[in-house]
């Protein structure tokens, strides 16, 4: 298996090997992206809430974080 077409051909099993890798990459990237976005959103929301609360208390430094 040297040439690119040989690699793509996978000894006649291209229809099984490539979908196995394709689906794996797709699912793992999707889970990672969803986790990253959820974390970013939640942390951004929290940031806004905490800043609002501090502002309402007039910069009260005793606010427990």
């Amino acid at each position: 298996m040297d040439s690119l077409s040989g690699i793509l051909h996978m000894g006649g099993y291209a229809g099984f090997v490539w979908p196995a890798y394709g689906i794996s990459i797709l699912v793992l990237v999707a889970v990672l992206a969803a986790s990253l976005l959820t974390a970013r959103h939640a942390e951004a929301d929290l940031d806004v809430l905490q800043r609002n609360r501090r502002a309402r208390r007039g910069g009260d430094s005793e606010t427990p974080e």
């Binding site: 990672l32 986790s35 990253l36 959820t38 974390a39 959103h41 939640a42 942390e43 929301d45 929290l46």
Partner: peptide, 9 residues
């Protein structure tokens, strides 16, 4: 990542 999201939530 998910732990951070849960803690923030």
């Amino acid at each position: 990542l998910r732990g951070r999201a849960e803690i923030a939530a």
